[in-house]
């Protein structure tokens, strides 16, 4: 459903060109939950933004259902690490922002927004302002906002990175529950945490850095739901440990070459 062919992204840095991404190719099937993970600077957020249509790649092609990506579209919704809610608008207005951007009429907007709010457990907070909410709640508003536009593809940029560890864990479970209950949307999830990537995904796309490129694509060999038993099992821990050490190796190698 999402196909990347030799995608490259070159930035200008102090006059010198800098390859954030080089020859990135992979495909994501419809209904799949895939994570993008790699050491710092591997370009995973850049890649996510290219799929979102917020950035335009300097080489290669990106297709969604065989149509080239030419900008943001109705089929995709983005969830940001820092929530990025409108601070001057209440929760209801924030959740309906995506719908408003797409020209949906006021009554229908409020109706659909109310549904999404209920789904993320924030009914009753419609008139609250972002500064009155905790980080976890703000991100749930962000998630509701994204789901309200009924996207076929969810793009998540380290959505739980700004939250404390406990909230993070709870939100991961909640996100999975939400995602599983929906009509199996496709999800592309950027993270720094291998635990998170393995827990959430069907496949993990491991990237390396300098230049950003795909190192390997790993199928997560565990079914759903990912219960406590599964997560605590020996096999699971081994998979996670193995992947963590690969990630660590990459990051260390990068740190050493940089000196």
């Amino acid at each position: 459903m999402i196909d990347l062919h030799d995608v490259g992204m070159t930035f200008e840095h102090d006059g010198a060109p800098f390859d954030a991404l080089r020859d990135v190719s992979f495909s994501i099937r419809e209904g799949e939950f895939a994570s993008l993970i790699g050491p710092s600077g591997c370009g995973k957020t850049t890649l996510l933004k290219i799929v979102a249509g917020l950035l335009r790649q300097t080489s290669g092609e990106v297709f969604i259902d065989s149509s080239p990506v030419a900008g943001p579209g109705n089929d995709r919704a983005f969830i940001f690490q820092n929530f990025v809610l409108l601070p001057w608008a209440d929760v209801m207005t924030n959740v309906s922002f995506g719908l408003e951007a797409r020209g949906v009429g006021r009554e229908e907007r409020l109706l659909r927004a109310a549904e999404e709010l209920a789904r993320v457990g924030l009914t009753g907070f419609e008139n609250h302002y972002p500064h009155q909410l905790s980080g976890g709640m703000q991100q749930r508003v962000g998630i509701a906002r994204a789901l309200a536009v009924d996207p076929r593809i969810l793009l998540l940029d380290e959505p739980f990175g700004a939250l404390d560890a406990l909230t993070r864990q709870l939100m991961q479970k909640d996100l999975l529950a939400l995602w599983q209950r929906s009509e199996r949307r496709t999800a592309l999830f950027v993270t720094h945490s291998m635990d998170e990537a393995v827990f959430l995904s069907d496949r993990v796309i491991l990237m390396n850095t300098r230049p950003g490129r795909v190192d390997s694509v790993i199928d997560v060999p565990f079914g759903r739901p990912r219960t406590e038993d599964v997560v605590r099992s020996q096999e699971y821990r081994e998979v996670v440990t193995d992947l963590w050490s690969r990630l660590e190796q990459m990051q260390r190698a990068d740190m050493e070459t940089r000196g």
Partner: peptide, 16 residues
């Protein structure tokens, strides 16, 4: 997430 917000998690910041 159909249940109401878990209290342990996102309790709103107390207003002064």
């Amino acid at each position: 997430m159909t249940a109401p917000a878990p209290v342990s998690e996102g309790a709103p910041k107390t207003l002064p």
